[in-house]
Simulated scan of single mutants.
Amino acid sequence: MSSPSVALLRGINVGGNNPVGMADLGDCFREAGYRDARTFSASGNVLFTADRARGPELEEALARMLEARFGIPILVVVRSRDEFAATIAAAPLDIGSASLRSEVFFLKHPLTAEAAFAELPELREGIDSIAPGPGALYFSRLAAQATKTRITRLMSMPLFQQMTVRSWRTSTRLLELLNAG
């Protein structure tokens, strides 16, 4: 059964580390038999159609494929179009507003939003807000006071190694691309 999906790769092309060309990344997926493979943004977003495994099995197969091709371990989080749409639909109403800087922290299986939420460090009240959702955490901070955020505490925790972050704008654009086919 075919399923339009998006692979969210963690830690490539960030601060000059783990450089991966988007054309080469798209080729890697196509050569492995994934249909309709195309990339969006240099941060490691690959839209594709999978005819095979899903969920954790697909994530692990893609991680092995990418490490073999690029020589670096890359955490892969995959969401089908329906899973991605459910994550976007469940977001807090104010996420993405002009007064906030908002991101979606996509969680790698088997990490759940409830388990991740339970381990969160104390954030700065009145500046930071975080909410659990399907396979994700939604994080926002007041744009005017973004330098006072405490989200860096989460980013220093081992738990963070099982997440990949996308801006709200990138996340909604990915959904548009998934819906366009």
Rank of each mutant, 00 (worst) to 15 (best):
M1A: 11
M1R: 15
S3A: 15
S3I: 15
S3G: 10
P4L: 07
P4H: 07
P4D: 10
V6E: 00
A7G: 07
A7L: 10
G11H: 00
G16A: 02
G16Y: 01
N17Y: 05
V20K: 06
G21R: 11
G21K: 14
G21S: 15
L25T: 00
G26C: 13
D27I: 00
C28E: 05
C28A: 15
C28R: 01
F29H: 03
A32C: 06
G33N: 11
G33L: 11
R35M: 09
S41D: 03
S43V: 01
G44M: 08
L47D: 03
F48D: 03
T49C: 12
A50C: 14
D51P: 02
D51C: 02
R52T: 13
R54A: 13
P56C: 09
E60M: 12
A61D: 15
L62E: 07
L62R: 07
R64I: 10
F70V: 02
I74Q: 00
L75V: 11
V76T: 11
V77M: 04
V77S: 00
S80T: 15
R81H: 10
D82F: 05
E83P: 07
A85F: 01
T87K: 00
I88Q: 03
A89P: 10
A89W: 09
A91D: 03
P92K: 10
P92D: 11
D94N: 09
G96K: 05
G96S: 03
S97N: 12
S99I: 06
S99V: 12
S102F: 04
F105K: 01
L107V: 08
H109I: 06
T112P: 07
A115S: 14
A116K: 11
A118L: 11
A118P: 09
A118M: 10
L120F: 10
L120S: 04
P121D: 06
E122C: 06
I127H: 01
S129G: 11
I130Q: 05
G133N: 00
G133L: 07
P134Y: 05
P134A: 03
G135A: 12
G135E: 03
L137R: 08
Y138K: 09
F139S: 04
S140K: 08
A144G: 09
Q145L: 14
A146G: 08
T147F: 13
T147D: 15
T147E: 14
K148L: 13
T149C: 08
T149Y: 05
R150D: 09
T152E: 11
R153F: 05
R153A: 09
L154W: 03
M155V: 00
M157E: 13
P158G: 02
F160A: 13
F160E: 03
Q161H: 11
V165N: 12
T170V: 11
T172C: 14
T172R: 14
L174P: 06
L175K: 04
L177N: 02
L178Y: 07
A180K: 08
